[in-house]
Computed example of a mutant assay.
Amino acid sequence: MNNAKRRGAPPHHFIDDAWLALRDEPVLDPERPIVDPHHHLWDRPHHRYLLPEILADLNTGHHVRGTVFAECSSMYRADGDPRFACVGEVEFVNGIAAMSASGVYGPVRVAAGIVGKVDLTLGAFAEDVLRACMERAPDRFRGIRHMAAWDASPEVSTLLRPPPHDLLLNPAFREGHSVLGRLGLSFDAWVYHPQLPQLIELIDANPHTPVVLNHLGGRAGLGPYAGRQDEVFKQWKASILALAERPNVTVKLGGIGMRLGGFDFHERDLPPTSEELAEAWGPYVHTCIEAFGTSRAMFESNFPVDKSCCSYRVLWNTFKRLASGFSESEKADLFAGSAVRSYRLPPELAQPAPRQP
């Protein structure tokens, strides 16, 4: 398989650094504080993304003040009760966050918030596992993501360990989900757009649990959804508008650099410019902002997954282009404020870093 076919193809780990290096842009609005509310950390056979790698991306010109880690089944415990294996990921990320918080690696605070994974199909027992996660990272653990993204098409459903069909309707899952709000934790939702009505049902069953919708609601443009752009957009938009009516829901604006979106950027000879990405992604991003408002919407990198499409510098230039028509206070929400509120992060992360003497 040539590199063009490998970029962003399952399992989404191949980064074509030589291709990305063909595109460079000056940083737009370089002083604007950014809190990146969605990235991963892992050490896998074919790809490593740990503190040195994410710092290399964060330090490419944008003023990133802090980040939130999103679960990716990384560093689970090999020993002990398998129901608590996921606690290992929280321990692992909390260690990296402590390294970053030392200041040795610069002013950015990597993993200032941690979104882990707990199997909610454990039902009431999920509370024990959630409390174990809270104990391991009391200053940073903010909630969990139990991915429910499932589709009958193998072109769409590309997770290494796909969830069962109709997971969100599972009574045990719903029982586990009900624990989150009581513990003051949030739920990150990763589904494909045909599943959004099921997510709405889940939210209505537990209206006191904060929900963060990942990746613009998972609009798919591959497989059975290819060539049906207008129909898919209409269906997706109806669900986005319905979700926005639920005040406990916020939305992450990103994750659209994956092949799932059906764009062809990965296979081009040159990486896309921020202008090209802003034009292609604009209808989806602006629909979500119009529905949720800037106070409940936040730009996200989804790195390193979306790095298969563009560099960190180009990605945040894209977001800055998409936000160019908003007021200063609205931009402050989109780039940092909404993330700080959603994940209960230190408020100073939404402010510019103090100048060095």
Rank of each mutant, 00 (worst) to 15 (best):
Ser239Cys: 14
His40Asp: 11
Glu275Asp: 10
Phe69Ala: 06
Asp43Lys: 13
His177Lys: 06
Ser295Ala: 14
Val340Leu: 04
Ser157Cys: 12
Thr60Cys: 09
Asn94Val: 05
Phe92Lys: 14
Asp139Tyr: 00
Ala353Ser: 11
Thr294Leu: 02
Glu89Ile: 12
Leu28Ser: 04
Ala238Val: 08
Gly325Tyr: 01
Arg182Gln: 10
Arg140Phe: 03
His63Gln: 13
Arg142Thr: 05
Thr209Phe: 01
Val305Pro: 08
His13Leu: 15
Cys72Asn: 09
Pro210Ser: 01
Ser100Gln: 12
Arg6Gly: 03
Pro162Thr: 07
Phe326Gly: 05
Gly255Glu: 00
Pro171Thr: 12
Phe173Met: 03
Arg341Tyr: 01
Phe303Glu: 08
Asp16His: 08
Phe335Pro: 05
Gly8Arg: 00
Thr287Ser: 05
Tyr343Lys: 10
His47Leu: 09
Tyr284Ala: 07
Met134Ile: 10
Asp81Arg: 11
Phe233Val: 07
His146Cys: 13
Leu199Lys: 10
Arg83His: 09
Ala18Ile: 15
Ile96Val: 12
Val249Arg: 10
Pro197Ile: 00
Asp29Ala: 02
Ala242Tyr: 02
Ser324Lys: 12
Lys234Gln: 13
Lys234Asp: 15
Cys310Glu: 10
Pro346Met: 03
Ala85Met: 07
Tyr105Glu: 00
Thr273Met: 04
Pro346Tyr: 07
Ala18Val: 15
Thr158Lys: 02
Leu185His: 04
Asp128Ser: 15
Ser324Thr: 10
Asn302Phe: 03
Val179Ala: 14
Arg246Gly: 07
Tyr312Gly: 03
Val27Asn: 03
Arg259Ile: 14
Asp306Ile: 05
Trp19Val: 09
Ala323Gly: 06
Phe92Ser: 14
Leu160Glu: 15
Ile34Asn: 03
Gly293Cys: 07
Val191Asn: 02
Arg142Ala: 07
Gly262Ser: 02
Tyr284Thr: 13
Ala332Thr: 13
Phe335Val: 09
Pro163Ala: 06
Glu31Gly: 13
Asp36Glu: 12
Ala137Cys: 07
Gly261Ala: 10
Val211Cys: 09
